[in-house]
């Protein structure tokens, strides 16, 4: 479920094919990847930074790095979206740390209004992305509150395991167990079709 699926028999170039195109300096290949993933990347950056202008800068920088560093992408080490979103997330967390404004803000899964682009060049991509996101958010809602808290604090607020243990006043071992159980449960919930 985490790979791309071909819906309604649309001819579609895989992420890996497109990345080979980007390595050959085909800007059109980058454009298809942008249309496919920019909205998800902005979602990640915005959830971390909570400010649209900086989040959009992060998205631009992420895809610029895809263009400049395409040759370093190795599909044997993981799928393209994981590589892409890790860059987005790390750039956004760096920015967040620079601001040194790590307030104890509430984790709200529904803080940004859902939008479907009206002028999307690839409506199927947009729909697929929305569906994907809804499934993941439903799965996260099924985790216990303590499990959910730990993985969201780590991923979207950039807290380390030590910082989470301090923030929640729990032993590190408890935090480790919660994170592991949360990831296992997510995988189980998402792998059943």
């Amino acid at each position: 479920m985490l790979g791309r699926v071909v819906m309604m028999n649309l001819p579609e170039r895989s992420d890996e094919e497109l990345m080979s195109g980007v390595v050959r300096r085909e800007s059109a290949a980058l454009e298809i990847l942008y249309d496919r993933y920019a909205a998800s990347a902005l979602g990640v950056a915005l959830k971390i930074l909570r400010e649209r202008a900086s989040a959009e800068d992060i998205v631009q920088e992420t895809f610029w790095r895809v263009w400049k560093s395409a040759a370093t992408f190795d599909s044997r080490r993981g799928a393209f979206p994981s590589w892409l979103f890790a860059m987005t997330r790390n750039l956004a967390i760096d920015e967040l740390r620079r601001r040194a404004a790590r307030q104890a803000s509430d984790i709200d899964l529904d803080d940004a209004a859902s939008e479907i682009p009206d002028c999307a060049s690839d409506v199927m991509d947009a729909v697929w992305t929305q569906m994907q996101s809804e499934r993941v958010r439903e799965a996260i809602q099924q985790l216990s509150e303590p499990q959910r808290q730990v993985i969201l604090l780590a991923y979207f607020q950039g807290l380390t395991r030590q910082e989470i243990a301090e923030r929640l006043q729990e032993p590190a071992g408890t935090i480790h167990t919660r994170a592991r159980l949360a990831l296992q449960k997510l995988k189980t919930l998402l792998s059943g079709e």
């Binding site: 998800s40 979602g43 959009e56 993981g78 529904d110 929305q130 996101s133 990831l183 997510l186």
Partner: peptide, 29 residues
């Protein structure tokens, strides 16, 4: 555990960036 972690980016609602982002990016490219 990898599969569970790979799902997390999708926990954020996707938001299409404004057209400016794509325009600036491809000007650079």
């Amino acid at each position: 555990l990898r599969g569970g972690a790979q799902a997390l980016p999708y926990a954020a609602r996707p938001i299409p960036p404004s057209p400016r982002v794509k325009r600036d990016l491809f000007n650079r490219v």
